[in-house]
């Protein structure tokens, strides 16, 4: 129900409903869902959407049963996946790999047993294992932000960048961002890891502010980090000097964009609801003959004061 407009999934769900009605009485299916536990805002949102999608689908399709496992690390996730196959006899697996490498072999083993595999967000390190790949657009996430910086700033303007936890995902975003601002003359003063954490971002930004007398804009690359960054800027009393672009569409940030906060001109989405899409599509693959294999990339969109109300979901935890 939330941010489903990223994918035109309403139609899919409608199709699924009719197909489901046909198959409903014949057979029952078990779908395993393995995702990282809710350790920070984005994953919290993701967990919320996964639960919400499962509840909704279970209500609609009595023949579907779901097993949800949340794991704090890659090893635990492997165990969870193995347990699902061994004890719950799953027909399909929806997995958001905690890390690509350690999950590749176990997921491949699942696939070899003839189980449907949907991979979400982070790809496995060997291509072609999964039946279905659903992901946000990491390069698009960086590019979209970068393009906005190029539109707003020019030759000789100075910015700082806060990066996430050092991962492939973070690298893809930052590389796309750098590529987008290439040749614009925008000067990246510094990049440090804020680890998608408010406190860390606060500390890093405080230090950036001590270090640089002139900063025109900040790419915080995540809304949790944006909160820490804004607080550090407010403390230094330099709120008039620079604006901040976060990312992922946290409701508090979207609200401020909606209200036209000059410090937060735009945001770039990276939808936690992608997990709901993945679960829905997997369910559809189980109960109908609709072809759903392939790759579904959910584009990152720019949120502006004008369209922000379409992205504002006050009841979501994220």
């Amino acid at each position: 129900m939330i941010r489903r407009n990223f994918l035109k999934s309403a139609a899919l769900v409608a199709g699924l409903a009719s197909a489901g009605a046909v198959a409903a009485q014949d057979e029952s299916y078990t779908i395993g869902v393995a995702i990282p536990s809710a350790t920070h805002g984005f994953m919290g949102g993701l967990n919320f959407h996964a639960r919400e999608a499962i509840e909704r689908l279970e209500a609609t399709y009595p023949q579907l049963e779901f097993v949800l496992a949340t794991s704090g690390d890659a090893g635990k996730m492997v165990n969870d996946v193995e347990d699902m196959v061994a004890t719950r006899n799953i027909d399909a697996l929806v997995v958001l790999p905690f890390e690509s490498e350690p999950l590749t072999a176990p997921v491949q083993a699942v696939k070899e047993q003839g189980i449907w595999v949907t991979v979400v967000d982070r790809g496995l390190s060997v291509p072609g294992i999964e039946d279905l790949y659903v992901a946000g657009d990491n390069p698009g996430f960086g590019r979209e932000a970068g393009e906005y910086f190029v539109e707003q700033l020019g030759e000789g303007d100075d910015i700082v960048v806060l990066r996430g936890i050092p991962t492939t995902l973070d690298n893809e975003r930052v590389e796309a961002f750098e590529k987008a601002i290439e040749g614009s003359g925008i000067n990246v003063l510094d990049m440090q890891h804020g680890n998608w954490n408010r406190d860390d971002a606060f500390n890093v930004m405080q230090d950036f502010l001590s270090k640089y007398d002139k900063i025109d804009a900040v790419w915080a690359s995540d809304d949790d980090m944006a909160i820490g960054v804004l607080e550090a800027i407010a403390q230094a009393g330099r709120d008039k000097e620079m604006w901040v672009v976060g990312g992922a569409g946290m409701k508090e940030i979207i609200k401020r964009i909606m209200d036209g906060d000059p410090q937060l001109p735009i945001n770039v989405t990276y939808p936690p609801a992608q997990i709901a899409t993945a679960i829905e599509l997997t369910a559809l693959a189980m109960v109908s003959d609709t072809p759903v294999t392939g790759r579904f990339i959910i584009g990152s969109q720019r949120v502006t004061p004008e369209n922000a109300k379409d992205f504002y979901f006050p009841e979501s935890p994220f």
């Binding site: 350790t39 920070h40 805002g41 408010r198 909160i227 607080e231």
Partner: peptide, 12 residues
């Protein structure tokens, strides 16, 4: 009072 918030990643 610093950030006015707490989450699962506070104090890690």
């Amino acid at each position: 009072p610093r950030l006015g918030s707490a989450s699962g990643s506070t104090g890690v």
